[in-house]
C-alpha cells in the first residue's frame, strides 16, 4: 500500500516509496546521533511548526520523544524549522559555541530539512502528517571522511572531484556538484538522502539544464519554477 494511499490526489509511487523509506530510516542510528536522538530532532521540528501554525498536529498528538534534546540543539532545530530566513551565521556560531560539533550540526540541519520536506508535502496534498517511527537499536557510526575540508560554507564539505577523491566520486556520481548538493556532505548519508529527494521531487540532476524537461506528468517546467521561486522567496533564500 502506498505511503499516501489516503490522498485524494495521485501521488507517484517512486516518490511515496522514498518518503516512506526516509521516514522509516529515522528508526536507525545515524552518523552522529542514535535513533532516539534523531526522532527527537524530527519531533521538535514538528512541535515548532505546530507552535507557529505552519503545521497541524495529528489527532492525539505525537508520542513524547524517548530522549531530551540539549538546549543548543533544540534552538537550532526550532529556528531552522520555522524561520529559515532568520537563520544566519550567528545561529551557526551560537550552535558551535554551545557545544555542537560541525558533524552533529550538519546531521541536525539535514534531519530538520528533510522532516520539513515530508511534512510540507503531506500538508500540500491534504493528508495528516505521517507518524514518526519508534526508535530502533544501535549506535551512530561516527565516521568522518578525511577529504572533508573548509571550503566556502559555514561547515566543512567534501570538495568536488578530483580534489574530493574517491569519496567525492562515489557521493557525487563522478560529476562536479553545485554547493546545494554538497552542503551536508560532511555527513554523507544525509547528503545521499538529500539528493535522493531532489531527484524524485524536483528532477533527475543530469536533466537540470534542459529547459523544457518535464519530470511531473501534466506539470511543466515553468510551473515547477513558479513554485520553487515563490517558496524560496518566502524563505528569503539567496542561494
Amino acid at each position: 500500500m502506498s505511503f499516501y494511499a489516503d490522498s485524494d490526489y495521485p501521488v507517484r509511487q517512486d516518490l511515496a516509496d522514498i518518503h516512506e523509506a526516509q521516514m522509516s530510516q529515522l528508526s536507525e542510528p545515524g552518523t552522529w546521533g542514535n535513533s532516539a536522538q534523531r526522532i527527537a530532532i524530527a519531533a521538535e521540528a514538528r512541535r515548532a511548526a505546530y507552535d507557529a501554525g505552519q503545521l497541524e498536529a495529528p489527532d492525539g498528538g505525537d508520542p513524547e520523544p524517548e530522549v531530551p534534546l540539549p538546549g543548543v540543539a533544540k534552538g537550532v532545530v526550532r529556528k531552522l524549522a520555522v524561520s529559515p530566513r532568520d537563520f544566519l551565521e550567528d545561529s551557526y556560531r551560537e550552535a558551535r559555541d554551545g557545544g555542537l560539533s560541525d558533524e552533529e550540526y550538519v546531521e541536525i540541519v539535514g534531519i530538520v530539512s528533510r522532516m520539513v520536506d515530508l511534512d510540507v508535502f503531506a500538508r500540500g496534498i491534504g493528508v495528516p502528517l505521517r507518524p514518526l517511527p519508534s526508535p530502533g537499536p544501535g549506535e551512530p557510526s561516527r565516521v568522518r571522511l578525511e577529504t572533508a575540508k573548509q571550503e566556502l560554507a559555514f561547515v566543512p564539505t567534501i570538495p568536488n572531484p578530483p580534489e574530493g577523491g574517491a569519496e567525492a566520486a562515489e557521493l557525487y556520481g563522478g560529476h562536479p556538484m553545485p554547493y546545494i548538493m554538497r552542503a551536508v556532505s560532511l555527513v554523507p548519508d544525509e547528503c545521499r538522502r538529500h539528493v535522493e529527494l531532489e531527484q524524485v521531487q524536483y528532477l533527475p540532476l543530469p536533466n537540470i539544464r534542459i529547459p523544457d524537461y518535464q519530470h511531473h506528468e501534466g506539470f511543466s517546467r515553468s510551473q515547477v519554477e513558479i513554485v520553487a521561486g515563490r517558496v524560496s522567496a518566502l524563505n528569503e533564500c539567496f542561494y
Partner: peptide, 12 residues
C-alpha cells in the same frame, strides 16, 4: 517540499 528543504540546507 523540495525547496523548503533546500532553503533550510542552504541557509543552515
Amino acid at each position: 517540499a523540495n525547496f523548503s528543504k533546500n532553503d533550510r540546507v542552504a541557509n543552515g
